[in-house]
Deep mutational scan, measured.
Amino acid sequence: QTQEFDNEEEARKAEKELRKENRRVTVTQENGRWRVTWD
């Protein structure tokens, strides 16, 4: 699953929550947008 964010702060917040659920999370930056991908 993927979700896009406008800034790193929001993306990192989402990453932190997903990691609490023991998910594999990848955060990438593309064209000024932050993308959080998880399984």
Rank of each mutant, 00 (worst) to 15 (best):
Q1A: 11
Q1L: 13
T2M: 14
T2Q: 09
Q3V: 12
Q3A: 12
Q3D: 04
Q3N: 05
Q3S: 07
Q3Y: 12
E4S: 10
F5W: 03
F5T: 01
F5Q: 00
F5Y: 13
D6I: 05
D6Y: 04
D6A: 09
N7G: 04
N7M: 04
E8N: 02
E8I: 03
E8Y: 06
E8M: 04
E9C: 07
E9W: 13
E10M: 08
E10W: 04
A11C: 06
A11P: 00
R12D: 02
K13W: 13
K13S: 11
K13G: 07
K13P: 01
A14H: 12
A14Y: 15
E15A: 15
E15W: 05
E15C: 09
E15V: 08
E15N: 01
K16M: 13
K16N: 13
E17Y: 05
E17P: 02
E17V: 09
L18E: 02
R19D: 04
R19E: 08
R19S: 10
R19I: 12
R19P: 01
K20T: 08
K20R: 13
E21G: 12
E21A: 13
N22W: 12
N22D: 10
N22T: 05
N22F: 14
N22V: 04
N22M: 07
R23G: 08
R23C: 13
R23I: 15
R23A: 13
R24V: 14
R24G: 09
R24I: 14
R24H: 14
V25D: 00
V25W: 01
V25Y: 02
T26L: 07
T26V: 13
T26I: 12
T26S: 09
T26E: 11
T26Y: 09
V27P: 00
V27D: 00
V27C: 07
V27H: 01
T28E: 07
T28D: 04
T28V: 11
T28R: 05
T28G: 03
Q29S: 10
Q29Y: 15
Q29I: 11
Q29D: 04
E30G: 04
N31Q: 06
N31K: 08
G32P: 01
G32E: 04
R33E: 03
R33S: 07
R33D: 02
W34M: 00
W34K: 00
R35E: 11
R35M: 11
V36M: 03
V36R: 00
V36K: 00
V36G: 00
T37Q: 12
T37N: 12
T37M: 10
T37A: 10
W38P: 05
W38E: 13
W38G: 06
D39N: 07
D39I: 10
D39F: 14
